[in-house]
């Protein structure tokens, strides 16, 4: 057991927990964008930063990664923390001016406009990497990646072409915190990442429910016969 304080409150935690987990359990609100329970932390978005004081030393750390430590004092809204958080939000607002998620978070921190020139080529992507990770680790296909570096970094399929590996499952869409990824189901066809997928029709209710490629992928992985997978979840 590790004991320390968050904003003056005494808290206890297991040895390998992160500050973010403990803080959230204890009811402290720390905003995050790139953190996900199932996929762990990368420390990309820098919204979850907190101040950790140990004696005379103070550090600003990402709470999603920083392991709890006995005797430290954690502050979730110190002036330095707020400076970083507000700056990050203002920068993201300039990057993704049309993202409702960012607008909302920024507003919560008192930021309604950005001093920087607004980007018009980044969509709503904040490069949290969650889509890439869910595709690789949750779905297991690794169709997506980050390309380039610095300001040119983006989430994409290789060469921005329809990917052989993508099964059109839409897990990336579901996990994206800002709604950047475009997916459309129309007339039995799903369009995502520039690729068109034929949707399977449920033999019982006759409704389209999932891309054929996705069902085939599941069939191969799990050994479940295709006939069973064709039946949609509501008819099962």
């Amino acid at each position: 057991m590790v004991e320390f304080t968050i904003n003056g409150k005494n808290v206890r935690a297991e040895k390998d927990e992160t500050i973010l987990n403990v803080a959230r359990r204890e009811g402290f609100d720390i905003p995050t964008l790139c953190y996900n329970d199932t996929l762990g932390s990368d420390g990309r978005c820098r919204l979850c930063m907190v101040e950790v004081r140990k004696g005379n030393r103070k550090r600003i750390v990402t709470s999603c990664l920083y392991p709890v430590e006995s005797g430290v004092e954690v502050f979730t809204e110190s002036p330095d923390v707020l400076l970083v958080r507000k700056t990050v939000l203002e920068l993201l607002l300039a990057r993704c001016p049309n993202s409702e998620t960012i607008q909302y978070l920024a507003k919560e921190h008192g930021i309604t406009k950005t001093r920087y020139m607004k980007d018009n080529d980044k969509g709503k992507c904040i490069l949290c990497n969650l889509c890439v990770k869910t595709c690789e680790f949750n779905v297991g296909v690794a169709a997506l990646c980050m390309s380039g570096k610095g300001p040119l970094k983006k989430v994409t399929t290789p060469y921005s072409e329809p990917s052989h590996d993508c099964i059109g499952c839409g897990a990336c869409v579901a996990i994206c915190p800002t709604g950047h990824i475009y997916m459309e189901d129309k007339d039995g066809v799903r369009t995502i990442w520039n690729k068109r997928f034929e949707l399977a029709r449920c033999p019982q209710c006759n409704r389209y429910h999932a891309p054929v490629e996705q069902l085939e992928f599941i069939a191969t992985k799990s050994g479940t016969p295709m006939e069973q997978l064709l039946i949609c979840p509501s008819c099962k």
């Binding site: 690789e136 296909v141 169709a143 990646c145 390309s147």
Partner: peptide, 14 residues
Amino acid sequence: IPFSKGYEVATFYS
């Protein structure tokens, strides 16, 4: 290794 990982490396290094 996935093609996407190869592409990621190929585009990262200038």
